[in-house]
Design a protein around this nucleic acid. Structure first.
Length: 905
RNA sequence: GGGUGUGUAGCUCAGUUGGUUAGAGCGUCUCGUUGACAUCGAGGAGGUCAGAGGUUCGAGUCCCCUCACACCCACCA
């Protein structure tokens, strides 16, 4: 009986099975940790929150790499017996989503959507869009095979998360950390909202740089339109040129007639730049604002939220500031106040990170989080932070620094710790209020002069809620614990928080990772996660960012359709290292699709003529090849497990791939054919061989599962041992494939077996080599004589089959027959009669070249071993290994020399 | 201005704490359809590990400098 291989299709067809497999997983309930088998034994929780994708549209390849890595982490942990929870969700992404919907509405013909529709109707549109995006995202996430607990799905703007947001706001307000301040902020005239400092991007561009005569000095500026009311000249305190003028007042002819100006000294002025003197515009520059505050100078707003001049700009009031630049310069020109204009000035323009509109700094009343103010720390009871006591006075900045500095949060790769500290060092108070409509409303209410801050609206009439909404990163910062039910429930929180690892892109470290650390350590007195794993950007094959305009976008949905989710995942994980950008091409995905098919066919072979595909606890090696493959397999388990524990997916995957293809398939499977079909062998050996094939295959499926869950689960169906998703990862301590030989080093494969098997491989390769060299038809069988000191009787069948040999003569003292080619493998000589085929001139050349190489190698080894400082200093095992190499090489030299002498002239 | 990363075969990249004659995939060349797999098999060619110096018995690996590329932060009156 047995399984007929024709029952299983010749090639693995991903699109035929993936959706069914995913449904089966969902049906099994295993994505929810409470449903996992042997729950009581799963003492250790392993939690990851999925970085919630923005509901702005669809997933891209960056999301795919995130899902692939996190799913691998989660599946590995599940198979290792942990209580695994991976929480899905989406992010409302305030500004980004609102901007996207505005764009769509404008495309549909609206001029000013917000104004035309009003808050409520406009928000309805945004919500509808968000729901659609959400559905698309969930669908795509499932296509990737992500084993997320959908029963716990969250949304940054849903009820539970909103409650968490208001609660934290209230806590911070009561602690005096959230305050309302009037200061210069980053204003995006298109979004009509303020932005946090890190939401501002810089773009290089050329702008004219204007030099104006300003009383006794020449000042330079790229923005003449802001200079109307400048009255303060700032120079560096050490600048000798202006030393005597500091503190004096001048009467100066300026844009709208004569003004009174004065000069102050401040280190903010650079002596080398321009004339070394500048005027400041406190209302429209963050830096100037700070200088003004330091020197108690007035702040007068001359540009409003629409980008127009205020009444303070005199004749220009009401006009667009940017558009008026030329007119203003002309006016100064007419007055003879333009010194010169540098047309070739590179300037970095600050723009909105969402819509690339130039930022207009202006003064505005906003809500801020004070990162430098002390508050009384509330320590967690079940996962306290080491080194900070309950009630201790600390600032948010110090808290953020402490948990990373004290290694309570590990960062992979660790070089990003430097980046993180650098960011905190430069951190200013965080502007959390936005003037857009989509988002969490600031939980503050006003009635006349009265202000109420609370989790719920105040009772009584006449209260009006603050019209601002919160920065989207405020709610994202609560993600690890708001998703677990805080502040309402604490069951999940106690089991699953702190989460184990946060996996995300390095580009989001400030926006999100740092904010989560801030929010969680503050609100819970715990770290949000114990580890941070940062992946890089996925670029195209030329290393460019993927973008619509370059038409180089690889859409994961397309590649899943064409090559399968497993191939897509492998291509994203193997060959890339954390923190570094990686390049992706369709060819690469194609080559991994080939591998999924290879694994599929290895399985087809293993299932051939097997009565029952059953899981096996133990197998008995009978032959050299058996001992070799099981020993090698144990080594692979050991190394791959180590890599997986350290999240070294690329190394683990490569090692698995090498073993699966180059050792298990290319060698053991071929040998298995011999062992299975040798009539002379007992049925026992046939069964043993099948057992070993199945034994290794089952465990390879387990180890491949985190990388390619679909194909492995599909093949695993044959084993009739439940679902692969909850199979147990091989445990070398509990149940190793072979008994360990000792501790450390090479404990799974006897040295003699390794050498014997490698010797066998050497002989086969030598024959294949010779055949290829003389272009012997691969189907044609040859007679071969082997002169070897080793006993090869048991390997005759293998050599015959793998090297296509008809008559094999084993004779330690054999002499080379006339007209035979000779090959050397270690101490073994292989003679292959080729009669007239052999071109002895070419043969001699080839052997002489080989000899020359070898002599050089021997020479270098001899030199090395003669060197006393080497033999004295190097570890004994290194030296003895070299001695062995020398012995081997010298033997080969001797044999080769004889061969060459034997050749007819 | 401060910082980080990268530079290894034609291309994409591995290379663990320094220790075989530096590896893989793709591509390329030769030969091949023998019942797991042509999404395949066998074999070959291809590298002064960016350059210079240093430490060491020994450097792709550690240190210093130089060059090239990429990125981050700050600043740009």
């Amino acid at each position: 009986m047995g399984i007929d291989q024709n029952d299983i299709s010749k090639a693995y067809e991903a699109q035929d099975v993936e959706d069914n497999i995913y449904s089966a997983w969902e049906k099994s309930g295993y994505f929810t940790p409470e449903n996992l088998p042997d729950l009581e034994d799963r003492k250790e929780a392993f939690t990851i929150v999925l970085p919630p994708p923005n509901v702005t549209g669809t997933l891209h390849i960056g999301h795919a790499v995130m899902l692939a890595i996190e799913d691998a982490m989660v599946r590995f942990a599940r198979m290792r017996g942990k209580r695994v929870l991976w929480i899905p969700g989406t992010d409302h992404a305030a500004i980004a989503t609102q901007a996207k919907v505005e764009k769509l509405l404008i495309k549909d013909g609206l001029k000013d959507p917000r104004h035309d529709l009003g808050r409520e109707v406009f928000l309805d549109h945004v919500e509808k869009f968000a729901v659609e995006s959400h559905d698309t995202i969930v669908h795509q996430t499932k296509k990737m095979g992500a084993s997320l607990d959908w029963s716990r799905e969250a949304y940054t703007l849903d009820e539970d998360r909103s409650l968490a947001v208001r609660t934290v706001f209230k806590m911070m307000y009561d602690d005096g950390l959230i305050y309302r301040g009037d200061r210069v902020i980053n204003w995006c005239p298109r979004c009509k909202s303020t932005l946090a400092d890190d939401e501002v991007e810089y773009k290089e561009g050329k702008t004219p740089f204007y030099y104006f005569k300003y009383g006794p000095v020449v000042i330079a500026t790229a923005r003449p339109e802001t200079k109307f009311l400048d009255k303060t000249i700032v120079v560096h305190p050490l600048d000798k040129r202006y030393k005597d003028l500091v503190g004096s007042e001048f009467e100066i002819e300026w844009i709208d007639g004569k003004i009174k100006a004065h000069m102050i000294a401040d280190e903010a002025a650079y002596m080398e730049l321009g004339s070394g003197a500048m005027t400041i515009t406190p209302a429209h520059s963050l830096v100037d604002f700070e200088i003004a505050k330091k020197h108690n100078l007035p702040v007068v707003k001359i540009i409003d939220e629409d980008g127009n001049f205020t009444d303070a700009a005199g004749d220009f009031a009401g006009k667009n500031a940017h558009a008026s630049r030329d007119a203003i310069v002309q006016k100064l020109q007419d007055k003879g106040l333009v010194d010169h204009i540098d047309e070739d000035y590179t300037h970095s323009l600050s723009v909105c990170y969402r819509c690339s509109t130039p930022i207009e700094p202006l003064p505005k009343v906003q809500w801020f989080i004070d990162v430098n103010k002390g508050f009384k720390f509330r320590a967690s009871k079940h996962a306290p932070i080491n080194g900070i006591k309950n009630g201790q006075e600390i600032t948010l900045k110090e808290l953020m620094q402490h948990v990373v500095k004290s290694n309570q949060i590990e960062v992979i790769p660790d070089r990003f710790i430097k980046t993180y500290f650098n960011w905190i060092d430069n951190l200013r108070d965080w502007n959390i209020s936005r003037q857009i409509w989509f988002g969490h409303r600031v939980p503050v209410w006003y009635k006349g002069e009265e202000v109420y801050v609370g989790v719920e609206a105040p009772v009584g009439k006449g209260w009006e809620q603050d019209s601002d909404t919160l920065d989207t990163w405020f709610s994202a910062g609560l993600w690890t614990f708001s998703t677990l039910g805080w502040p309402k429930k604490d069951n999940d929180l106690n089991i699953y928080h702190p989460t184990q690892v946060l996996e995300t892109g390095y580009d989001i470290i400030f926006f999100w990772v740092a904010r989560m650390i801030l929010m969680t350590t503050y609100a819970l007195g715990e770290v949000p996660f114990k580890q941070v794993y940062l992946h890089g950007l996925v670029r195209d094959e030329q290393g460019r960012k993927m973008s619509k305009s370059l038409d180089n976008v690889i859409d994961p949905l397309d590649t899943i359709k064409q090559y399968g989710a497993d191939a897509t995942r492998l291509a994203l994980m193997i060959g890339s290292t954390p923190g570094s950008d990686s390049k992706l091409s369709l060819e690469k995905i194609g080559s991994y699709r080939n591998f999924t098919n290879k694994l599929w066919n290895i399985s087809r072979f293993a299932f051939m003529n097997v009565d029952e595909v059953k899981s096996m606890e133990k197998v008995e090696p009978k032959t050299l090849a058996d001992r070799w493959v099981l020993g090698r397999f144990a080594e692979v388990v050991e190394k791959v497990t180590g890599h997986m524990e350290k999240y070294e997916f690329s190394l683990a995957g490569e090692m698995l791939r090498d073993f699966t293809w180059n050792e298990f398939a290319d060698w053991y499977l071929e040998i298995a054919k011999v062992q299975k079909t040798q009539v002379s062998s007992s049925q026992n050996l046939v069964d043993r061989t099948d057992d070993i094939l199945l034994y290794i295959l089952e465990r390879l499926l387990i180890m491949w599962h985190p990388f390619m869950p679909f194909v492995t689960e599909e093949i695993y169906k044959q084993f009739d041992s439940g679902m692969l998703i909850v199979a147990k990862w091989p445990d070398l301590d509990q149940n190793p494939p072979v008994s360990p030989l000792g501790k450390g080093g090479a404990r799974w494969l006897k040295k003699a077996d390794r050498e014997a098997f490698e010797g066998l491989q050497g002989i086969i390769i030598a024959i294949r080599n010779t055949r290829a060299r003389y272009k012997v038809n691969p189907g044609k069988k040859l007679d071969v004589t082997i002169a070897s000191l080793e006993t090869l009787d048991d390997q005759v069948g293998i050599i015959k089959a793998l090297a296509k040999v008809s008559e094999l003569t084993l004779d330690p003292n054999a002499k080379k027959p006339e007209g035979a080619a000779a090959a050397v493998s270690g101490k073994t000589k292989v003679y292959i009669p080729l009669a007239d085929l052999v071109d002895f001139v070419a043969e001699r050349k080839k052997l002489e070249a080989e000899l020359a190489d070898l002599m050089q190698y021997v020479g270098s080894l001899e030199g090395k071993l003669k060197n006393q400082s080497y033999t004295k200093n190097a570890p004994a095992d290194v030296v003895s290994a070299d001695k062995l190499r020398l012995e081997d090489a010298s033997n080969k030299v001797k044999t080769l020399k004889v061969e060459i002498d034997d050749l007819p002239k």
